[in-house]
Amino acid sequence: MKKGRKGINTKQIVSYGIMIALALVFSYVESQIPAFFAVPGMKLGLTNVVVLLALYKMGNGSAMAINILRIVLVSAMFGGPSAMMYSLAGGLLSTVVMILLKKTDKFRIVTVSVAGGIFHNIGQIIVAVIVLNTTGIAWYLLILWFTGMITGAVIGILGAELVKRLPDKLF
């Protein structure tokens, strides 16, 4: 974003590599946690920590790129095409919302993350409506709305601390 330089340099390549690797590890760790949440689609969203870090340390485009690459790789390794649809819809929508909120420069990281959590779930619900061809999901939307807020807040607190503590020159 504010690098004032076109193209990509070695350091950025390394940063992208590290962030994507980190996101992959988080995704894997999360996939190993048995469904402690009773509702499908409900996750802690650990990888969102990485997206938040990328968003605030590397810029909007980087956050989007890392998130997309992460989702494609994770789906290829652990999921499948249908998992990829859900993840992409959730991931893209939440990242776009977080970028927009961050651009206003009026909100704290925690708030941005809460919005990201909610819209991640909304993206998944939209796909569920299309794929399953059902509209009886108001109940589901209700649960995912609130869990999105809670997990978004937890991840946001974690992410905000990391953004504050990690030196900018690392990225």
Partner: peptide
């Protein structure tokens, strides 16, 4: 790079969270 400013007012955050 944009870093969270501590003095940033909480009010806007609270409003948005309230809306949610």
């Amino acid at each position: 790079k944009s870093i969270e400013k501590e003095k940033k007012s909480l009010k806007r955050d609270m409003i948005l969270l309230g809306v949610f």
